[in-house]
Design a protein around this nucleic acid. Structure first.
Lengths: 118, 118
DNA sequence: CCGGAACATCGATGTTTGTCAATATTTATG
DNA sequence: CATAAATATTGACAAACATCGATGTTCCGG
């Protein structure tokens, strides 16, 4: 009594050069999303903004606070703040004529955590 | 290459809107370097490459291994591998006609660690 | 209600980047 | 040495991006 031979899946030619896969790599979709988050951080001005916000008491800063040390125009600073906010790293609250930006708690950590799983 | 505006505006009135600084934000230089590293990772194809390399037995893969699942041309895959290698995330070793890429141990972790200090 | 202050949005511009086709380079093999 | 295979490099091009000046918008004080 013997088992029927199982048909082999249409595997690609593994013979030549490469080691087998030991686990699934991240999906195309996850890569896309993760890349979007990293892109939001991958700019010197934006990294400094995040750092400056974190360096403030209350982890809070307004545009007027950032413009001069960054050496960038006000529209450019606003642009970067929007990118960081859209990506979920900062949140905006307006009080009077000022707009205060604060770090979203855990947002940086979650990126750091994702890096470990890549 | 375009330069940000260099001239510093006259000292602004600090009185008005903002909380004091509790620690020094990262330097312009560190921001520049860190951004370069993040930029190298901030691309869907490159994240998938890193993941695919890590997913291989021996954490090693050759170009031929990556091209088809990525759905990109061979020159494009080589380009991404070069970016990741120059940034210190992958290392290359050639054996015969094949080029094997492996993860540089700790390189991802060090980026994750830097994120915490921003 | 008017002027000014803080910030956002828009439009334009030069730069960087991701991609591919074509070509060069390197290595093994006949 | 000639050929083929795997990879790298080059050149070109369109899309994305960072930046700024000009302009809109919102809010406060007189």
């Amino acid at each position: 009594m013997y088992m029927p031979v199982l048909e082999l899946p249409p595997v690609r030619d593994l013979a030549a050069c490469c080691a087998p896969i030991t686990r699934e790599p991240i999906s195309e979709d996850s890569a896309e999303k993760f890349a979007r988050s990293l892109k939001a951080l991958a700019d010197p001005a934006r990294l400094r903004i995040v750092s400056m916000v974190a360096a403030h008491a209350d982890a809070e800063a307004c545009v007027c606070d950032l413009q001069q040390p960054l050496g960038l125009s006000q529209p450019t600073v606003s642009h970067h703040l929007k990118v960081l906010t859209d990506a979920g790293f900062l949140s905006r609250s307006k009080r009077g004529t000022w707009a205060y930006y604060t770090l979203v708690p855990g947002s940086l950590d979650s990126i750091a955590g994702l890096l470990a799983t890549v």
